[in-house]
Nucleic acid binder design. Structure first.
Lengths: 132, 132
DNA sequence: CAACAACGGTATACATTGGATACTGATAGC
DNA sequence: GCTATCAGTATCCAATGTATACCGTTGTTG
């Protein structure tokens, strides 16, 4: 069964690859996946590790990831309740691409901060110049 | 000069690496960078290629990328005006990590769509079941 | 010569999303 | 019975994104 006869195209708003691409680039989803890379984590633990997300948004994020088959949600019948979130095999396969992006970000911090300073200085002097 | 004596940590909301990580994961920024991978593109062209972004948001995105030193903005003194956006060397260095993520998304489309169907079906029957 | 088109935006109003905070239900321990 | 723990919901408000109209400049067209 060929479900994928059209070429995937990130630039087509109707292509599912676009939605998926943006899901994994999501502010919280990408962080959650990386935290879960070390093994299962419960809700409150996740909330502490991923600084700082509100319970509502964390729940939304986790539900979306679960729906897409990237994580599993396991409820333990205990009181107080214990719910573990864990990467699926597909979720784990995302760790490497995400790590590369994270490493890129971490290694370019100094350069980017310099670029910002230079840009902001240029903006400031342009404003001052136009006031003359 | 060591500006980076603290270890970069995506999970620390005060660490610049986090801000940068989220900028490159931004809905439009990541698409713009990939479009610019083929060479300089002007504003209206970009707007057509990256379906479908409003001019306000595209401008915001481009300004942010320019400020971070990932793209350059070149105004040609013509009428009607011509403004070209182009990747810097640093911007180009982002192409490979972003491509990996894009390839991941494209290759996992069928699996994720199946996972969604299964999840939604399970939700539906749970709702029906609880209504009995 | 007046109206229009092309381009790169900006301005304004509105819809959607995200965030802060309070609260719930179940139960074990005091 | 009062309190704490945990995994969320509910509610309200702020920030962000979107749709759409509009601007200035100048070459072209009628």
């Amino acid at each position: 069964m060929e479900t994928n006869n059209l070429p995937a195209n990130i630039l087509d708003p109707n292509c599912p690859s676009r939605v998926i691409f943006q899901r994994i680039g999501d502010k919280w989803a990408s962080l959650v996946i990386q935290v879960l890379g070390d093994g299962p984590v419960r809700f409150s633990e996740l909330r502490k590790t991923v600084n700082v997300v509100t319970p509502k948004v964390l729940t939304q994020t986790l539900r979306a990831l679960e729906r897409d088959g990237l994580i599993t949600r396991t409820v333990h019948a205990q009181v107080p309740p214990r719910v573990d979130y864990e990467l699926t095999a597909m979720g784990e396969s995302l760790l490497q691409p995400l790590s590369l992006l994270r490493e890129w970000a971490e290694s370019h911090v100094p350069t980017i901060l310099e670029a910002r300073d230079a840009y902001d200085d240029a903006q400031d002097s342009a404003v001052l110049g136009s006031a003359n």
